[in-house]
Amino acid sequence: MFAVLRDLIRYNAEFTIGLILVGIVAIFAALSFFSPVDPTQIYLAIPDQPPSAQYWFGTNSRGQDLFWQLSAAFKNSLIFGITVAVLSRIISIAVGLAAGYLGGWVDRVLMFINDIFVAVPIFPILVLFYFVLRNHMDSFTMALIMACFGWPFDARLIRSVALGLKHREFTRHAVFAGMSTRKVLLEEHLPYVMPIVFSTFMNNMLWSIGMEVTLAVLGFTNINNPTIGTVLYWANSHSAMVVGVWWWVLIPVILIVITFVGLFLLAVSMNEYIDPRSRLRRMGA
């Protein structure tokens, strides 16, 4: 595991850059555990202060120290992204491995459901959820809903790998040795799909955090819970760009770009890692 990580850092510049970028954001978000201020409170600092030695990122029009505000926002958004990714990974692994290994009508039924989920646009459904739940819609409910829609692409990927594994020698050995189906899937096949799971994990986080930003900017989430999206929502509703509080918009946008490019580079380099041909080319073999 560590050898893999070391090789990736040594031979794959994209992975290294991605790791550094995500690391910066993760550390910044983790700082919020030591935050001296409550990020949900308003008017704790002088409003509209530009970045200075006292307020590194300035303060916003709601009298919040942007440094701690953003730190809490990124913490919440990253936790949200990870929750969605973990939950939807569980579904996609279960569906993908089962469909690929069992085949036959199980495969057909699962893939039929899978294709339905791919085709249903999630955005109107999320808006509908917000519309009926209003302020009951907290970020965990949203994570649950998004996890229910975030698995089908990856389930198909995992299934295609599992299809190949099914006819391999070691699977037959395992079956003859009397392993149960569940054990074959979890102990024999799961390790083979782990690289895909990691790579799609990043992609899924990109997708879910992006969706959260989209909803929050429109005001379709709990806007009092600091997340990346709600910071921008408040900046918009106070017309930050027009009144000249540029740091309220610019700093979050820079941090978002860092997060997204970092996660994206990690996902891309993971993808390359899965394909050994491109890895060998990179290592100069």
Binding site: I209, T214, F260, L263
Partner: peptide, 21 residues
Amino acid sequence: MGLQPIPYYIVAFIILIVFGY
């Protein structure tokens, strides 16, 4: 590739700032 992972909203907003202001 640099633009691709950025959420729609951010790109649209940057365009709005560039062409609006």
